[in-house]
């Protein structure tokens, strides 16, 4: 089992922290993990991305150049990275801020979730990325959702622990929306 996840979006959408959440949860679940951020000039505004590798074997290459899964929080990220996803891979994107009309091909599956709108309904737009993370967890079953929730306590600094409930809610909403969509034809791997 090898998942190479690319998370991408605007700076400030919590992309790097969401990647750390996956890595922390994966490690707690006994997986081999690696997390690599983009640290270039894009950190100072524009797009941010990070790669997370989750594997049941030691990780040879921690760089994510052909992701098995893309979590895209905005249009530029979706446009840039969707064509790089492996054949048969999974693309979950924030349909509140991005759309994909064209053909993708190579058996890659697309799932749009209105993450920003869901986060606004939860009461904190900054937890939107975890709607996509929750969907990824539900569709791949790679880590139990409970482990991801537990990891929030490690990844979020203590002065942000009041946001744990909203983040947990976002994870749950993402998971249930994704599972509902599976009924509409998004096949599980």
């Amino acid at each position: 089992m090898l998942e190479e996840v690319l998370l991408a979006g605007f700076g400030g959408q919590g992309i790097l922290s969401a990647g750390m959440l996956l890595a922390q949860a994966g490690m707690a679940h006994g997986l081999h993990v690696a997390w690599i951020p983009s640290y270039g000039p894009e950190m100072r505004g524009g797009t941010a991305n990070c790669g997370v590798t989750l594997s049941d074997r030691p990780i040879s290459c921690p760089l994510v150049t052909e992701p098995t899964t893309l979590l895209a929080m905005n249009q530029p990220s979706l446009d840039k990275f969707a064509p790089k996803v492996k054949p048969g891979g999974l693309i979950i994107y924030n349909s509140s801020l991005a759309r994909w009309d064209g053909e993708l091909g190579l058996g890659r599956r697309l799932l749009g979730l209105d993450a920003t709108a869901q986060a606004e309904a939860i009461g904190n737009v900054r937890v939107a990325v975890n709607v996509l993370v929750g969907a990824f967890i539900a569709l791949t079953q790679i880590i139990p959702l409970e482990r991801v929730k537990e990891a929030l306590r490690v990844v979020l600094p203590p002065h942000r622990h009041h946001l744990i409930a909203a983040n947990e809610k976002a994870l749950e909403v993402g998971a249930s929306l994704a599972l509902a969509k599976v009924g509409e034809g998004i096949a599980l791997r």
Partner: peptide, 10 residues
């Protein structure tokens, strides 16, 4: 190098 410096691993 920049990757080793920036990456996180257990």
């Amino acid at each position: 190098d920049g990757i080793l410096g920036q990456m996180m691993e257990p």
